[in-house]
Simulated assay, not measured.
Amino acid sequence: MTTGLSPVRFDAPLVNPSAPGLWGVTQWTDTSEPLRWLPSGVEIRPWNYGFEESFGVWAAAWDAAQSDLGPEDVKQAAERPEPLAAFAAITTWAADECDLMAPSRDEARTRAAQIHRLREPIAVEAEFAARMLDDADTPTAVADLVAAVGALDEALAATNTVGFIHARPGLISVAAEKNQLVRTGVGWQTPSGHRWVFGGGYIDALGDKLVATSQPFGWRGEVALRTGEDLPLNRFHAIAERSLVIGYEALLGAVEIEEESP
């Protein structure tokens, strides 16, 4: 009788996240200090959006007397816009477990850290998408992707700022086919120069909706790796976790594509 040899074991090398998505466009503030924003989130005060009523074009004659001026000629600031509701903090985690042997413990730590590294950006994108849709209320219906980009281009042009258009990755091929995708050194832009943000967390969360925001800002703590032992069961547990928050100054537009797309 012959005994079969056990297969050779090969540990797959740890891979890097494939796409920057929301993670890559966010302006992060990393901190090891106490997370003061954790209980109540972060409220972002607007400085660039919502001031339409505080601007105008002088329409009266240059030589008009004060008595000739009406209420519409008064140069007066409107009330400052209220900030959006505070952006809530998110805590992400990943876990692995094994026996109590030293090599197994090292493996559990590595696995927990790698799982967290790959899955955290996707989970955060899904949470971020839900918040964007809450702020967007009812997206404007459009016929196709070109109409969607056109509508958001106009919404962003009205603010005279560069925007970030969030969409699911399935629309990358559609955007490329319709010449709505310009490759840059850091990702993709629309033909008018706004930044595409394609993320795996947007697949189900956004569907055929596209949302334009101002620059995303983020605050995050360090990834903590915690371990514990369950001696009666001969188990070693490793958990990687982190708390963070991502927000924006303004939501600038949202559309939904009516026709089917990949």
Rank of each mutant, 00 (worst) to 15 (best):
E125G: 12
E222T: 13
A86D: 06
A65I: 09
T140P: 03
I257R: 01
R80I: 13
V223A: 10
G41W: 12
D204Y: 09
Y248W: 13
E258C: 10
L145R: 12
G70F: 00
I246G: 00
T227D: 09
S173T: 09
R119A: 15
I257N: 00
K209L: 05
E241V: 14
E82P: 05
P83Q: 04
F198C: 06
D99M: 03
R36V: 15
A143G: 13
R168C: 07
E79Y: 06
S243A: 13
R195W: 07
A238S: 15
V25C: 10
S6T: 07
G207Q: 08
A78D: 03
E72T: 00
G247L: 02
D208T: 11
S40I: 12
A113L: 15
T31S: 11
A151L: 08
N48A: 10
D73K: 01
S40K: 10
L171C: 06
G163Q: 01
A155R: 06
L210S: 01
V197M: 04
T92A: 11
A112F: 11
A123Q: 09
P81E: 02
D96Y: 09
N179C: 11
W188T: 05
H116F: 13
D153P: 05
N234M: 08
E258M: 15
S173F: 10
I246F: 01
D30H: 10
E154W: 13
L225D: 04
L171R: 11
I44Y: 07
